[in-house]
Design a protein around this nucleic acid. Structure first.
Lengths: 93, 93
DNA sequence: TTTCATTTGTTCGTATGTATT
DNA sequence: CAATACATACGAACAAATGAA
């Protein structure tokens, strides 16, 4: 049950095999799985993430696009991007 | 006066005598003249056109450069590229 | 109702790197 | 080497929706 898990530092140079927005998506996904942000709760805003990660707004949005496609998050206009409750087809936990 | 006019399909391979951005400019010009986009109204965004035509952003921008030089459109930052009202200094046609 | 702050959405402008011709 | 074309990425500004005061 996803508690306090270690997440590697954000280092775009250490991930130079892939694109920034993909590495970004992976990193945010790790943090979600590590429980940094709980299901139903919002992530920091796009601008905040942009500053935190030191990447452009468009890059953050691309990363969030990826996470949205993966079904990890949902984005509501003027609200924010929320961690999607993981669908457990039958089991609770 | 410019109603529903037929515009050939976009086919970069059928126009291989010139550059893509020129064929692109010609094609968009045809659509404007055919009334697909009205004077004063915006064209689809550069990114949208990029996807629609299946060409890179830079290529779209080059094509729009051409149309701007021809006086067919005007581009406003953060707004879009608008069809310029055709200047009929005195004559109609 | 109006105003304001917050947040996502959209768009152009620009720069860089790579591949092809 | 230069021009074309593609993709990624960063920056800035404007637009729209929401919610609170």
């Amino acid at each position: 049950m996803a508690g306090e898990v270690e997440v590697p530092e954000w280092d775009p140079d250490a991930t130079r095999v892939v694109y920034v927005y993909e590495a970004l998506a992976d990193h945010i996904a790790l943090r979600i799985e590590a429980g940094h942000w709980k299901p139903g709760n919002p992530l920091p805003g796009e601008r905040a993430l942009s500053e935190e990660y030191g990447v452009a707004l468009g890059t953050i949005r691309r990363g969030l696009d990826v996470l949205r496609e993966r079904g990890l998050v949902v984005t509501l206009k003027s609200k924010g991007t929320l961690v999607k409750p993981q669908e457990s087809p039958s089991g609770q936990e």
